[in-house]
Simulated assay, not measured.
Amino acid sequence: MSDARYRLIGSTASPYALKLRGILRYRRIPFDWVIMTRELRAATRHLKPMLIPVLQYPDGSHGAETTALAHDLEVRHEGRSVIPEDPAAAFLNDLLEDMADEWAVKALFFYRWWDPEDQEYVARWAGEEWSVFDAEPGSAEEAEAMRIRQVGRMPILGATQENRALLEESYRRMLAAFEPHVGMNRYLFGTRPSLADFAWYGQFSQLAIDPTPMRIMRAIAPRTDIWTRRLDDASGVEGAWHTLDRALEGAAGALLSLAGELYLPFLAANAEAYAKGAERLRIRVWGLDYTLSPFKYQVKCLDRLRARFAALPEDARARLSGSLDEAGALKILAGGTA
Rank of each mutant, 00 (worst) to 15 (best):
residue 234 A to N: 11
residue 209 I to E: 01
residue 198 F to R: 02
residue 157 L to A: 08
residue 184 M to H: 12
residue 180 P to A: 09
residue 239 G to Y: 10
residue 215 R to A: 08
residue 170 S to D: 10
residue 196 A to I: 06
residue 206 Q to N: 04
residue 256 L to S: 10
residue 164 R to V: 01
residue 208 A to G: 04
residue 248 L to S: 14
residue 246 R to P: 03
residue 155 P to D: 04
residue 213 P to L: 08
residue 212 T to Y: 07
residue 189 F to H: 05
residue 180 P to C: 08
residue 209 I to R: 10
residue 212 T to R: 13
residue 188 L to M: 09
residue 158 G to R: 03
residue 157 L to Q: 01
residue 247 A to E: 05
residue 187 Y to T: 05
residue 240 A to E: 07
residue 247 A to C: 07
residue 249 E to M: 10
residue 176 A to W: 01
residue 185 N to W: 00
residue 217 M to D: 00
residue 200 W to F: 12
residue 226 I to E: 04
residue 218 R to A: 07
residue 197 D to F: 13
residue 246 R to K: 10
residue 226 I to A: 14
residue 174 M to P: 11
residue 225 D to N: 03
residue 222 P to N: 02
residue 203 Q to K: 08
residue 164 R to K: 13
residue 187 Y to R: 13
residue 241 W to A: 00
residue 176 A to L: 10
residue 186 R to A: 04
residue 170 S to R: 15
residue 164 R to T: 01
residue 197 D to R: 15
residue 155 P to I: 07
residue 218 R to K: 10
residue 184 M to A: 13
residue 251 A to R: 15
residue 247 A to D: 06
residue 204 F to V: 08
residue 231 L to W: 06
residue 182 V to L: 04
residue 201 Y to D: 04
residue 230 R to M: 05
residue 208 A to I: 04
residue 184 M to D: 07
residue 254 A to S: 11
residue 188 L to P: 11
residue 234 A to S: 12
residue 195 L to T: 12
residue 154 M to I: 09
residue 168 E to G: 04
residue 172 R to H: 06
residue 192 R to L: 14
residue 203 Q to I: 06
residue 254 A to K: 14
residue 176 A to T: 08
residue 236 G to L: 02
residue 229 R to G: 02
residue 202 G to P: 09
residue 253 G to V: 08
residue 185 N to K: 14
